[in-house]
Design a protein around this nucleic acid. Structure first.
Length: 609
DNA sequence: ATCACGCGGGG
DNA sequence: GTGTACGCGTGAT
């Protein structure tokens, strides 16, 4: 039996003898060892939970289908101890195949956890986190599915599930790249317009542009053709053992363009592990470019979530983060600069270099926070960078639900949610015009998370009557049964009178409480630490936790989320308005006059009487 | 007002 | 891949 400690980069599954095999990709931490490890887990099966109105009949009916096994398990459903049928399938693709059929059985009330991607389920159930260290126990295999064990790749068969390990600082090798195209006739067309420059910058010290023209600039690598540009790019990425490749709008421009131009020359963009090629995943209406084992991050997508701007050009984002103008050549002038040569060409080459250096700088500044979110949320780095913050919070909650032995709520169906529902939101007092002096500022620290915790706002403790007069199924309805609820035991929201039981503590308040406690612990560690690098790393961690806590309110307010609850969302804002308005009132009693207020804070001036 | 639509980024 | 964006401004009705 062999043991390996790796940084987990990627997870997927393949089908082998009609069965799913989980593949974990990682690298050992030692810098001199570039070997990639591909660990195979043959012992993980997909499953769903079934709520039966008659367990015996349901068991019989489901057993008629081509499934692996059924067992009765106890899980909590909004904190109510319940019996579920856990139905295990042979293959992940059996789940969409059979789930609707199972749902339709008359013996079945509902099904749960039928839409959780297999590789995500694996990460959650094994308590392992991407971009962190894990321990593997198993044996070395000589080959698997036409892939040979080699100097670069070790194939490892797991004897037991992977174990999470404490991971300290891990340095990743990052490369930014950018294409320039000669497009005299409108927007670049990959059938027609060739790549003239490809810029590369790495955090290991490479800064260059590959081009078919040079003006004797030392950062230019002169090659003979577009084909050579692409080949040199591929070579540079491979030779430098890059972990993360970043671009700006590279999902939608650079990689698709590169793919098209490479195809013309018969070149494969085979930058993934063991020569695996560039592929494009559908993401909503757009595509995401990725490799197996080389993580591609599109910073454009990320910046749209990271900062709030009216435009997201590379120049605008760079200025926002570094307060520096960067060189700019207008897109429709690039071909002229290229054709005119001399000073203009020099400028263009400098611009190309500046683009990749700026892109790398943005990556170095922003990726640490996303890496922390990856380690906290526990989904792939690639996925985290392409998720809305609400989705990040949701996947965090899915993981926590597993930890709490709670069954995950289903996504609300289309008809279930009327789009008319609109939450009022925070209290806003329009600013008073003029130049004000003697201003004081007041704001609540994490107002919404605090309200969720202090008022125990959670769907599992909400007292809610359905149109048929019955209470919604959760721990509270179970407690009160048919007795008249005693209002002393509830927090009652202003304006709407939604009632939240004071006990037990709700799932989401409990999770947020843990996040905030964890954050306090980290802040204490920052205070006690003397190591500046450690302080910085911990600070990014506490920021990530703060972000996550602040996002939890959104989880209630958006109808596509699993924990959607309009009552919870409007109760939070109602209490929020209450708090800020009461505080303003108090301040005014002491002689302050409010100039402007928004949601969780206000400005006022003191009027001396 | 309300709705449907299409754009963003990239060269 | 057990998933299928999203929020805003514009012009039409």
């Amino acid at each position: 039996m062999e043991k390996r400690e790796i940084i987990l980069f990627d997870v997927d599954y393949v089908t082998y003898n009609e069965k799913p095999v989980i593949r974990l990709f990682g690298k050992e931490k030692e810098k001199n060892n570039k070997k990639t490890i591909m660990a195979l887990d043959f012992d993980f099966q997909p499953y769903i939970y079934v709520i039966a109105n008659d367990i015996e009949i349901a068991k019989k009916e489901i057993y008629e289908l081509d499934i692996k096994s059924i067992e009765i398990v106890n899980k909590k459903d909004f904190q109510v101890e319940s019996q579920f049928l856990k139905v295990t399938f042979y293959h992940p693709q059996d789940v969409p195949k059979f789930r609707d059929e199972i749902r339709k059985f008359r013996s079945v009330n509902d099904i749960k956890e039928y839409d959780i991607p297999f590789y995500r389920r694996y990460l959650i159930n094994n308590n392992i986190f991407p971009m962190s260290m894990i321990e593997l126990n198993g044996e070395i295999e000589s080959s698997f599915l036409n892939i040979e064990n080699s100097d670069n790749l070790e194939i490892f068969k797991l004897n037991s599930p992977p174990q999470p390990l404490e991971s300290d600082n891990i340095d990743f090798k990052i490369l930014s790249f950018d294409l320039e195209v000669r497009n005299p006739d409108g927007m670049p067309n990959s059938k027609r317009d060739e790549i003239i420059i490809l810029g590369i910058s790495t955090n290991t010290g490479i800064n260059k542009v590959i081009s078919t023209k040079t003006e004797d600039l030392d950062f230019v690598e002169k090659v003979d053709s577009e084909e050579e540009i692409i080949k040199s790019f591929i070579k540079t990425v491979k030779e430098n053992d890059i972990d993360i490749i970043v671009g700006y709008n590279s999902d939608n421009f650079d990689f698709p363009y590169l793919r098209d131009r490479a195809k013309i020359h018969g070149i494969d963009i085979d930058l993934g592990w063991e020569g695996s090629k560039l592929n494009f995943l559908n993401r909503g209406y757009s595509k995401a470019a990725g490799f197996k084992g080389l993580i591609h991050i599109d910073l454009y997508l990320l910046m749209r979530r990271y900062i709030s701007l009216n435009r997201y050009t590379l120049e605008r984002v760079y200025f926002e983060l570094f307060n520096e103008e960067k060189i700019d050549v207008p897109g429709d002038k690039i071909w002229e600069y290229w054709d005119n040569e001399g000073e203009e060409l020099k400028n263009l080459l400098h611009y190309a270099l500046d683009d990749v250096i700026s892109t790398l700088k943005i990556a170095k500044m922003t990726l640490p926070l996303v890496l922390e979110l990856t380690r906290i949320v526990g989904q792939l780095f690639f996925d985290i960078t392409r998720m809305a913050t609400g989705q990040q919070a949701e996947w965090y909650l899915v993981r926590k639900a597993y930890e709490y032995n709670e069954v995950v709520p289903n996504k609300p169906g289309g008809g279930q949610v009327s789009s008319r529902e609109k939450n009022v939101g925070g209290y806003v007092k329009e600013p008073e015009k003029g130049l004000h002096e003697n201003i004081v500022q007041f704001d609540f620290r994490s107002l919404y998370p605090s309200i969720i915790i202090s008022k125990n706002i959670s769907p599992d403790v909400l007292l809610k009557k359905l149109s048929n007069g019955k209470y919604v199924k959760n721990i509270v309805s179970k407690q009160i049964k048919d007795e008249n609820p005693n209002s002393d035991n509830f927090n009652i929201a202003p304006s709407y009178n939604h009632k939240f039981a004071k006990k037990p503590i709700g799932f989401i308040p409990s999770v947020i409480g843990n996040i905030l406690n964890e954050r306090i612990k980290i802040k204490k560690r920052i205070k006690n630490s003397k190591d500046e690098t450690e302080k910085k790393a911990l600070d990014v961690q506490q920021q990530a936790l703060k972000r996550l806590a602040n996002t939890m309110y959104g989880i209630y307010g958006f109808s596509r989320f699993r924990w959607y609850s309009f009552e919870c969302a409007e109760s939070i804002t109602a209490w929020g308005r209450n708090y800020i308005q009461n505080t303003i009132k108090k301040a005014e009693e002491y002689g302050f006059k409010t100039i402007y207020a928004d949601t969780d804070g206000f400005y006022a001036k003191y009027i001396d009487k």
